[in-house]
Each structure stands twice: as structure tokens, then as C-alpha cells.
């Protein structure tokens, strides 16, 4: 490859890195800038560095509560999916039963169902069940909406488990559940790790369900909190930037720490 081609390609790579990172950098700067510096321009370096914005949103605007609510909901959704989807994925991958194809198709159809398309009925149902304005009212539908993806992914993961190992455990007289827990789960660990990360990510990012289900201020999640902060104090840019950073920093850190596992999970189901 000649030098000109190579250099122009490097420039393209760098330009897109700038596109990816510049908005993040901008928020970081804004979150550490005091109000009076705002009109010095978006790229002026904040000096002195302010932590006041973080302190203010964390203590006064309720972001410590929003953060813990998001953590609680995302953790609960993740656990719920982890307790159910691997079993179902395993049944679809390794067990014979009537209606298998039809049931799997039912799950597959759900892969693309958007939350807004079911909210018209879901909202009334949650009301009837007394789940409006409760965390459970967000957790259950969210886990259900993520279920098709989780089951689909788990089926792919479980198909990789060698039949001989499963047969050996059956011949030892182990019950299917015992065999699943002692033989299959340890082998599927990387897949389970990916599932955990992806479900946690999607759940943390969710906006519509917490927006319509939760009404009490102290129950709201970080995405809803960040969005409402934008509306409420339209001018507190430092505060909004700090809030935005609190909302996405854990995800970015998690992703960078476990890139491989994340990417494997997100590309699950993609054709090679």
C-alpha cells in the first residue's frame, strides 16, 4: 500500500475517533466549568476546575437517589433475566419437546417489539396490578422485553455445549436441573457474562418505562432524572453535564473493562 493511501486512511480513522469522543470530552469540560465561564466558548478549558456541579446534582438535585434507583432496577432486571433465560435457551438448544419450533418463533417475534407499541395496554395492566409508581412495575416489563434477545443469545451459547457431556451427566443419574447447574452453566460462563453485561447496559439505558411508570420523585431513575433536569433548570449547564456524566460514566467504565465480553454479546446473532 502506498504512503499516501496509508496516511489518508489514518486521517479517516482519526476523524471518526474525534466524532466519537469530542461530545464526551465536551461534557467533561462543561461539568467542571463554573457558570461564569460558560460564555468563554465550549472548548475553553475550565479553570479553576469545579467539582461544585457534581456536588450540587448529587446532593441537591437528587442524583444520588436516581443513581441508586437505576442500580437497583438494572441489577434486579439482570438477575431476573439470568434466572430465566439460560434455562429457556438450554431447553430450545438441547431438549426435544412438542411445539418447540412454534414457541421459539414466539420468542423470536418479540426481538423487535418496541416498548412504545405495547405501552397502551401495559400501562392499564400495571395500574390494575397496583404496579404503577413502583420499581417492580419497571423491572418486570423490562425483563420481559429483554427476554427474546436473552433467550435467543442463550440458545446460541447452549448449542456450543457438547452433547456428550450432557449425556454423561444424565447417565450418572443426575436430574436435568442438577446436570444443567453443574455441567452446562460452568461451560457457558463466558456467554452468561456477556448476557449479564448487555442486560445491565440496556436496562440502565431504558427511558420510556421508568418515565411513564414512576411518578414519585424519589423513585425515578437516572435517565429520567437527567432528562427532567434539562427541562427544569434550562440554564444550569454545568449541572446537566455533571448529571449526564454520572449517568453514563459507569457504563463506559464497565465497557472498557470488559470490552471483549460486551462485543461478543452485542454481536450475538449477527451473521459472520
Amino acid at each position: 500500500m502506498n504512503r499516501i493511501t496509508k496516511h489518508s486512511q489514518t486521517i479517516i480513522l482519526a476523524l471518526f475517533a474525534l466524532y466519537a469522543l469530542a461530545p464526551v470530552y465536551l461534557v467533561l469540560l462543561a461539568s467542571m466549568r463554573s457558570e461564569s465561564d460558560l460564555f468563554d466558548g465550549p472548548l475553553s478549558l475550565p479553570w479553576p476546575i469545579e467539582t461544585a456541579n457534581y456536588v450540587r446534582v448529587w446532593t441537591e438535585s437528587g442524583f444520588s437517589t436516581f443513581f441508586w434507583n437505576s442500580l437497583k432496577i438494572s441489577a434486579a432486571v439482570t438477575i431476573l433475566v439470568l434466572l430465566t433465560a439460560p434455562l429457556a435457551g438450554y431447553a430450545f438448544a438441547k431438549m426435544q419437546f412438542r411445539g418447540r419450533e412454534a414457541l421459539f418463533a414466539l420468542f423470536l417475534a418479540g426481538l423487535v417489539v418496541p416498548a412504545p407499541s405495547v405501552i397502551v395496554a401495559l400501562y392499564g395492566n400495571l395500574q390494575a396490578m397496583g404496579l404503577i409508581d413502583t420499581h417492580l412495575g419497571v423491572i418486570l416489563p423490562q425483563a420481559a422485553l429483554l427476554m427474546p434477545f436473552a433467550v435467543f443469545m442463550m440458545r446460541t451459547v447452549m448449542q456450543e455445549v457438547p452433547d456428550e457431556l450432557i449425556e454423561a451427566s444424565t447417565m450418572d443419574g443426575a436430574t436435568p436441573l442438577y446436570g444443567f447447574l453443574t455441567v452446562v452453566v460452568p461451560l457457558a460462563r463466558p456467554g452468561l457474562m456477556s448476557l449479564t453485561l448487555i442486560v445491565f447496559l440496556f436496562s440502565w439505558q431504558e427511558y420510556l418505562l421508568p418515565l411513564v411508570v414512576l411518578q414519585t420523585e424519589t423513585l425515578k431513575t437516572i435517565t429520567v432524572g437527567a432528562a427532567s433536569l434539562q427541562g427544569r433548570y434550562g440554564v444550569d449547564y454545568g449541572g446537566i453535564a455533571a448529571a449526564g456524566l454520572i449517568a453514563f460514566a459507569p457504563l463506559v467504565v464497565l465497557f472498557l473493562a470488559m470490552q471483549r465480553s460486551f462485543v461478543r454479546g452485542l454481536s450475538a446473532g449477527a451473521v459472520k
Partner: peptide, 14 residues
């Protein structure tokens, strides 16, 4: 890939 880990709500605000 980093932008994909950022909630769309926050992306919209930024």
C-alpha cells in the same frame, strides 16, 4: 463503540 454505551437520553442532551 463508546457512544453506544451512552444512554440515548444523555446522547440527546449532549
Amino acid at each position: 463503540f463508546i457512544p453506544r454505551t451512552i444512554p440515548l437520553v444523555v446522547a440527546g442532551i449532549i
